[in-house]
Amino acid sequence: MNNSVTTESIAPLASEKTPEKAKTSNVITEENSDAYTTVGQAFSENAKMSMRNVNVFYDEKQAIYDVNLDIGTNEVVAMIGPSGCGKSTFLRCLNRMNDTIDTCKVTGKFLLEDQDINDRKMDVVPLRARVGMVFQKPNPFPKSIYDNVAYGARIHGLADRKSDLDDIVETSLQKAGLWNEVKDRLQQPGTSLSGGQQQRLCIARTIAVSPEVILMDEPCSALDPIATARIEELIDELSQNYTIAIVTHSMQQAARVSHRTAYFHLGKLIEVNETEKVFTNPDHGLTEAYITGRFG
């Protein structure tokens, strides 16, 4: 990895502001003006992914305004904000999932290490193997548990022998904390599991292709508190080896699992800071309004 080169090659557009100065801007209308600057620490010394000048349009409607953000290696970055603020759209840009939406147009630089993934020439298939995704609703394929996990490994040719594939399935399920629950019934359909187990199966499925980055789009919103707690533990464990970007509606969850938190508002990245700072002493008035429940 060559992070220093990467960060230097892209000149940060927004200079970091001092918290005191930013905190004064507590008026929502100000954020509607086109020129704005993200407060806090949007950049990372050790960036795995670096996004610069990201703008996203659905037809004529702009959904994301000039976002700049780094996601550090083995870091968990949470993205929070009210509904419709563009956090999911932004996340889906990180592995080009927005390609499937015809009307969606994405501009800007998305560097994964030193490769621009938003380049039209970029092959999205290997990209998505490197940047995996876990979705809001558990979406196991209508196949057996084993085949669900083995799916990615099979299509990417990660295993030459059956025993290799067995290993991949076992380690992935172990990492996802599901192995003990399903090891005796690997041939049962993935849809027969409970919601929380299904979501961990989907995580195992993502891990099985050995991605470098895992994107999670509200992974717990369809789950009960116990299953949520289990997934949150899992995210914590996974952050040892993976870089994780997670979109969540739950501020408690963001506080529990993430290292840094990004607050989006009406398509703009308002503030990025250490999670603890965001939830105790945010730099920006809008962030404070959101986390104290004044709107959103």
């Binding site: 499937t100 990209l127 998505r128 995996g132 995704m133 876990v134 979406n139 196991p140 394929f141 990615g152």
Partner: peptide, 23 residues
């Protein structure tokens, strides 16, 4: 969501159809 899941794992369109959508 099933299509997204398959694409999210780096399947091509025909792999998604053959292995996920068709079954």
């Amino acid at each position: 969501s099933l299509r997204d899941g398959a694409y999210g794992l780096g399947s091509t369109q025909s792999e998604t159809i053959k292995k996920v959508i068709f079954p």
